[in-house]
Design a protein around this nucleic acid. Structure first.
Lengths: 306, 306
DNA sequence: GGCGCTGTATAGTTAATCACTATCGTCATT
DNA sequence: AATGACGATAGTGATTAACTATACAGCGCC
């Protein structure tokens, strides 16, 4: 019993004429004739009474035809589902973002993505890189926004932009007068750091190896956020390093804070998209990338190419 | 897209492993692999993300699998319907009976049939032979009980019993004293006849050609029944001829009536079953025949053989 | 009663499809 | 770097599904 057989069956039930039914199915009359006969044999039931005058459907035949129509209807739904699902921009997309990007990127990204792909609802999760990577591999997430380096088997990454680091000072801090801060001087101050697990913490420490905990005046704030640190800087608890997008919102808006660039070579982090090699909705990724690049992200340098 | 493909699809969705899914489907791994791939091509949708670690179903894939399960479920119902319909003794049977048999046969037949085939509800229609024949050919009836001769293209008949004719007299009629009545003497009396269309009317007239309307003392009661005629005989309106099953109920029970046999050669009618050659539920017909023969029908002579 | 028409079944052939075995390629692990 | 697991691919054979041609059956017509 195949779907083709069932199509023949309902055609014959409708036409009550082998020739006409065959024509409607775009097959020859013997083809349909044989198919019906085989179906009857398989089901061990007489579906039609054939006579010279006409073709009559049996009671059981009518019931089976009704069921066959149901089957064909449901099967047709599969094609419809496929057609609907063909568009990579339709259907929900599960996006992961690291903590140090989310608050600064998402407010720009979400409306732009919604405009570019209105029928692609976003399910967003913020987390540490390691957690995001795990979810991505499990399939709980489709695409993540993380900082490079990021190397996982089965995962491809695509750099989107470079984001320079900034020094955040409390207003009135002596460095406020300097045009740019050399990285090694960070060790001179009380440096507020994010907790372990945040990749940005490690990147800051890479910029200033002397600042490693236990070696100087740093202070780690476990389970905290850049926003908390920003407030702490404002209260004079220390200084910190922020990615430029996180530093921007407060420039000039908060009289208690001051942002200074680093001296060249300016430290930066490279932000990338990552997804499973096998992820089929590459079109969606393209749209995300474009939406990110269309966002007004303070100080970032787009990376071309795909 | 075939039902087999869909079975492979849901197996793979359940197992998330090509090899295991193939095993469960009793096919080789490449077979399933190729089938899934072709299905994906046909639908132009990625259903699974394959990677070395495991097989993940895509969102659209999951939706299609759910639909495929529905299709397979409905398809399974077809087999169930077929199994249920395989029994010729299940499902309603549309039985037609001529007016001059129905009242005397059905009270015996129906309970016996119900006992022999409890899951075969009877839909019964009484009518003239011609009407029954028409309905039978149209498929509105499945089997009819009629009197021979009956010859219609595409219809087969099977004689069941012979039923002798009787003369019905009002009590006190002079013939009441005779052991048997010669047919030709019917013309001497006022003979009450059924209306045109009743085959029994014609058969009676065949027994006594002299009784033909316009030639003697007959009287035709259009649209009437044997029961009406019986009452008329009781009131002395004339005499009549009845089939033995119709004559029996009143023998001895009605003091106003008297039943006499014909002189040999006793006239009789041959009652038969008829159905479309193509009618598939021959088992049901066998049961009907047996039930008829098991009925206590006064005076009838069963006809053997099939 | 034979003849022709209509309509389905059958025969025979070809092409496509399905499922197999064998093998390759890839990726993750030891 | 080797190994092992797993899915993909190649190639082959058998089954199946389609076709054309034709037989066969029943009915109506003359």
């Amino acid at each position: 019993m195949t779907l083709t057989d069932l199509r023949y069956l309902v055609a014959l039930a409708r036409e009550r004429h082998f020739g006409h039914a065959a024509e409607r199915c775009n097959v020859s009359q013997p083809t349909l004739s044989v198919a019906i006969k085989k179906l009857e044999e398989e089901l061990a039931v007489t579906l039609f009474e054939r006579s010279a005058a006409d073709v009559k459907i049996t009671d059981i035949g009518a019931r089976i035809v009704a069921q066959a129509e149901k089957v064909l209807l449901e099967a047709g739904q599969i094609k419809e589902l496929a057609t609907a699902g063909r568009d990579p921009l339709s259907g929900p997309l599960k996006l992961g973002v690291i903590y140090t990007i989310g608050p600064y990127l998402l407010p720009h990204l979400i409306p732009r993505l919604h405009e570019a792909a209105p029928s692609m609802p976003l399910l967003i999760q913020e987390n540490y890189t390691a957690r995001l990577a795990e979810s991505l591999k499990r399939g709980d997430l489709d695409v993540i926004v993380i900082a490079l380096p990021f190397d996982e088997p089965g995962i491809v990454t695509q750099a989107v932009y470079d984001e320079p680091f900034r020094v955040l000072l409390p207003a009135g801090h002596p460095w406020e007068q300097d045009a740019a801060i050399p990285a090694q001087r960070l060790a001179e101050e009380q440096l507020l750091l994010l907790g372990a697990g945040n990749c940005f913490r490690d990147q800051v420490l890479e910029v200033c190896p002397m600042c490693r905990p236990g070696e100087g005046l740093q202070r780690t704030l476990e389970g905290s956020s850049l926003e908390t640190i920003r407030h702490m800087v404002a209260t004079g608890a220390g200084i910190t390093v922020l990615p430029s997008t996180a530093a921007a919102p407060m420039t000039g808006s908060n009289p208690l804070l001051s942002v200074r660039p680093f001296e060249a070579p300016e430290p930066f982090r490279r932000i990338a998209l990552a997804w499973r090699v096998t992820y089929p909705r590459s079109g969606a990724i393209d749209v995300i990338r474009a939406a990110i690049l269309a966002s007004p992200l303070a100080g970032v340098r787009p990376i071309n190419g795909r």
